[in-house]
Design a protein around this nucleic acid. Structure first.
Lengths: 181, 181
DNA sequence: CTCAATTGAGACACTTATGTCTCAATCAGG
DNA sequence: CCTGATTGAGACATAAGTGTCTCAATTGAG
């Protein structure tokens, strides 16, 4: 089945490139349990594979966020739940950021759209009182992404469970980790 | 002068690899205004250049932090000033993290040492009341790094000045960006 | 079962990055 | 000025990643 093969290649590519961004297409094919020629049958080359990877990662991030947000009763809660849901995918977002997004117009547009959505959600949360109005929304978005990645890192190194990391990240974003004084 | 040449190569390598981590050694030599052969005279190959880059980046980070910390009257303030001082170098820390550090024992040891220092400083700041005692220090360190990078990003994209980014990052780390309620 | 589609394995040519070497030119210090 | 060190430019060989092709084997739908 073609779809199965493509999926195997994409999964393998994520797993391989996350550890070694300069890994060979042969490495990806091997990890996918697929012939090198087969990989070329579905992806014309490295660039196309990278673009497909980026597109899938963005879609997964978006889906994870949307799915989590449906359970929320307001925008602030949507951001909290979305943060938690996106933690397992945070590294995928990070690794493709530097790479193919900037080069492909379609990906750049999608990236821009998602960022605008995030800013809009933050603005809504601000009007709910969930975020301080005097803090620029772009900074909130940037912090959100940064702490999301930090949470992923904590889970990856085993220093926290998923729930612990999600709670810590949200706590830090909203009230910080400063002392009581 | 040899030292001058080496410095030019390292500077060029930073500038080139930050934009394109897979750039060629020829690109680096060109950017440095140096012959390709000369680069090989000082660095046996890509790996050695990367290691030198990583070592220098860690040293610069360390120096920036120490220099800023001498003006501080306590550990909490040292972290605040250090954060600000490290912002211009944050991307260097990020880009070498995934790369050569893990492979070279010396770099791994230095990285571990710096992390231990950071944890120790955070523990001291906790005892001053600067950070909440119930929050794990590894998470504070992780957040610190994450927000440091976020601040660099804001400055890079022109969405904030250095001072604004430093204030935002420290504010977020200590009291968050949540609403007043 | 049959046949078309898909695949794996391998061979092949091509490109590019890399590392080495040589030689003439330049530079710095004595 | 003289001399040794350093450099730039280029040639060269090598290695590795990439993309294409062929052919036999496998798979899956009809």
């Amino acid at each position: 089945m073609i779809e199965k093969t493509i999926e195997a290649i994409l999964d393998a590519a994520f797993s391989v490139f996350e550890d070694a961004p300069t890994a060979t297409l042969a490495d990806v094919a091997l990890e996918a349990g697929v012939g090198r020629a087969t990989l070329h049958r579905h992806f014309s080359g490295r660039d196309e594979l990278m673009s497909a990877l980026a597109m899938q990662a963005m879609r997964e991030l978006d889906e994870a966020f949307e799915a989590a947000a449906t359970d929320a009763e307001n925008y602030t809660d949507a951001l909290r739940l979305g943060l938690s849901a996106m933690i397992p995918l945070a590294n995928r977002a990070r690794f493709l950021e530097a790479g193919p997004v900037a080069d492909t117009p379609q990906l750049a547009a999608e990236s821009k759209r998602q960022r605008a959505e995030m800013i809009a959600a933050i603005d809504q949360a601000k009007s709910e009182g969930g975020f301080a109005a005097e803090v620029p929304s772009p900074w909130v978005a940037e912090s959100f992404d940064a702490l999301l990645y930090a949470a992923w890192e904590m889970v990856k190194t085993g220093e926290a469970t998923h729930k612990q990391a999600a709670d810590l990240a949200w706590r830090t974003l909203t009230i910080g980790v400063g002392g009581a004084k």
